[in-house]
Nucleic acid binder design. Structure first.
Length: 137
DNA sequence: GCCAACGTTGGC
DNA sequence: GCCAACGTTGGC
């Protein structure tokens, strides 16, 4: 089972909004980058992703579950991009900050560190375990 | 608020 | 098809 990391600016779409959306979940739209699209297309139902707050907060704050695989994004008039549906699964008891991730040598290869602008990223099993350990989940 | 990194666009 | 110009993202 693959793992992922999805970034959002809290002022645009925050973890608390994701939690409020409840078990029905919401669509994750607005991705307009081909690399990110490839990752969205590779996601399978039931897989999990870290929910990362960029900009103001810069921390992994929760875990979401993919509940619907890739389908067209109606807000994209070119018809090229799509989205998946996700729902909040669990918060991280201790949010893991970007600084903490950068301070952990075993996480030096994370896409979050090496390609910070990519909004949807794959996370290896090893990285997932380490971040989970740091976050208390 | 600044700036580096990256992606996209458009002129040639 | 190349590359300069521009816009956007996101860390600091």
């Amino acid at each position: 089972m693959a793992h992922w990391l999805m970034k959002s600016e809290p002022s645009v779409w925050s973890w608390s909004q994701q939690v409020e959306a409840g078990p029905a979940g919401t669509y994750w739209n607005g991705v307009r980058n081909h690399q990110a699209k490839q990752h969205l297309m590779a996601m399978k139902e039931g897989e999990t992703a870290f929910f990362y707050h960029s900009n103001e907060e810069r921390a992994v704050v929760g875990i979401v579950e993919i509940i619907r695989t890739f389908y067209p994004d109606p807000s994209d008039e070119t018809g090229k991009f799509g989205m998946v549906d996700v729902r909040a699964k669990a918060p991280l008891p201790k949010p893991v900050s970007l600084a903490a991730i950068k301070a952990e040598p075993r996480l030096a290869k994370m896409a979050l560190v090496t390609n910070s602008r990519l909004s949807v990223q794959p996370v290896t099993d090893a990285e997932w375990e380490i971040v989970c350990g740091m976050g208390g989940c």
